[in-house]
Amino acid sequence: MTFHELLDSIPEYAKDLKLNLGSVMEQSELTEQQAWGTAVACSLAARNPQLYGAVLAEAGARLSPQALFGARAAAAVMGMNNIFYRFRHFASNENYGAMPARLRMQSIRTHGADPADFELWCLAVSAINGCQVCVDSHEHAVRDKGLSEETVLAAIRIAATIHSLAAVVGAESAAAA
């Protein structure tokens, strides 16, 4: 399914999401790489194969191979880190914070994409996965690397829209099958 076929398949009750997706991908606060990298990372994190496939196909025409790799690497590594660091944050026992993670997260160093954009994608995925510590720390990292609050919120609009659309697309295609 292409990105536009996917948009056309969104049911009437979710029209807000459909229209939002169209507009959030065109926000002037984001470069094309930031916007489409965020969409790729968020659709991977949102666990709907059809939505992910459609976004990936569209993004493939717009992003460099490094950016495509980086966006997916951000979703992959944050899918792990959000759970791990969220556990530390959830548990009131502070000893866990002093114990080493002992998890590989080399892709944070080796992803090869723009460092600020990579942080932005990590932040958007963290918003989806719901880790307060990760949202807070990556929000700082993104702005340390020079991106504005407007850019951050623009990426979060994409995350929010994609997250909801993943549920709608998944549920409707299951019901129709």
Partner: peptide, 14 residues
């Protein structure tokens, strides 16, 4: 492996 599992994520900030 042990050398490469340093916590590179800003989530590890204290």
């Amino acid at each position: 492996d042990a050398l490469q599992t340093d916590e590179l994520c800003p989530c590890n900030w204290q």
